[in-house]
Computed example of a mutant assay.
Amino acid sequence: MQHSEFFKSVALGPYRLKNRIVLPPLTRQRSAREGDVATDLMAAYYRQRASAGLIVSEGTQIEPRGQGYAWTPGIYSADQIAGWRKVTTAVHEAGGIMFAQLWHVGRVSHHALQPNGAAPVAPSAIQAEKAKAFIATGPDTGTLVAPSMPRALTQAEIGELVELYAQAARNALEAGFDGVEIHAANGYLVNQFISAHSNQREDEYGGSLQNRLRFLREVVEAVAKVVGPGRLGVRFAPLFASTDEDRVYIGMVEDDPHRTYIEAIKILDEIGVAYLSIAEADWDNAPDLPDDFRRAVRETFRGRILYAGRYTAERGARLLERGLADLIAFGRPFIANPDLPARIANGWPLNEVDAATLYGGTEKGFTDYPVYSESQHIVSEEVL
């Protein structure tokens, strides 16, 4: 077996994962055009990838204001819960475990996506400069646009948002998910509270690092009370440097990212969440995470640690061997290879991803990628 480190089962909260390969949250923009409901096509897509040790759904907005891209699914209406139930049923029938990623984009939105055309909400009224929202321009057409100027949330509204996260977690359980992941990365709402670049509040949610981490703590505690900490993960995206100013995570490079995120991870460890997901920079020539940060993460957090970003099987296996990671997520390789765990186990070649069909569209580039076929097995054996 190739890269056997991936195929040692591991406990995650109350679950035993069959392998350490994860399908991470990947925005595909294929929900129903009306109501942002998960579809039968999405159920087929996730079922195809149920051989992963863990599936984390694409980001699913916790309320209408949380949407920054047309045709992404929600988890706040009865129809959306029913749509996701079809997905989780399909995954469970195929032997998979699936968590829902709870998502609110905050300021990374456009008034065209907001209820009644209102301004997006954010910790402070600071426009996102290095970001794009995506709005529909027709039934099946859309365009990238600069995010609108947001308005600052009141303290009362912040408390309401914490409850919206908790309610979304209840909805996820009703939809049949095995747990949830809180999206606190990539410049979206929770990340906006953490970052001094986007949070310039003068109340208890702004100023010092501990104040900027307050919203994270409140959201994680509220969701943990609903699902239990053993069925909860949190995703961060720390960035330490940039060699490509146009691709910085929405301007969110902290002055001291090591301290910022280790203090954030201490909160997760205190609450006892099941896993920490770290999304690394994934563009060409992106900076690697420093080894001292990886070691500090391991020393700080007692749960499972998941890394994602530009990973090959070889690079992921090395991180598992060093004991710095427990799980490795593969994004584009899993899009193009629904049988990715089998391909890694057997050393089979990988399909190439079709970049033109990543976002929006039909089954093309979504559910039509081939698995490695029996005829290929036979040919390979005859050659040997």
Rank of each mutant, 00 (worst) to 15 (best):
E5A: 15
L23Y: 10
A184Q: 07
G230M: 07
Q2I: 05
A94C: 08
E63F: 07
V180G: 05
A82F: 09
A146V: 08
D256C: 06
T89E: 15
S77M: 08
K86I: 00
W348Q: 10
Y205H: 13
H197G: 01
V383K: 15
A274S: 14
T243H: 15
G35K: 13
E174S: 14
A317D: 05
E363Y: 12
A122L: 06
G142F: 05
T367N: 13
G142R: 03
A44N: 09
A241W: 01
K18P: 01
P24W: 03
E382G: 01
A264M: 10
A133Q: 06
V219K: 00
G365F: 04
A241S: 15
I75N: 00
T141A: 12
D203F: 09
P287D: 12
D269G: 11
S242E: 08
I158C: 02
E58C: 03
I344H: 00
G361C: 07
Q200G: 12
D291Y: 07
A175F: 05
I344F: 01
S124C: 08
L12F: 09
D255T: 12
E374D: 13
D292G: 02
A169Q: 07
P14F: 11
V105L: 10
A279Q: 04
L41D: 14
Q200H: 14
L350Q: 13
S109N: 08
E181F: 03
I278E: 01
A82V: 05
A317E: 14
G360P: 10
V227D: 00
M252K: 02
N116T: 09
R214H: 12
I267F: 13
G74I: 04
S148Q: 06
R107H: 11
T143W: 02
G96P: 08
H111L: 05
G365K: 05
S148G: 04
A38E: 01
V22C: 07
I278C: 04
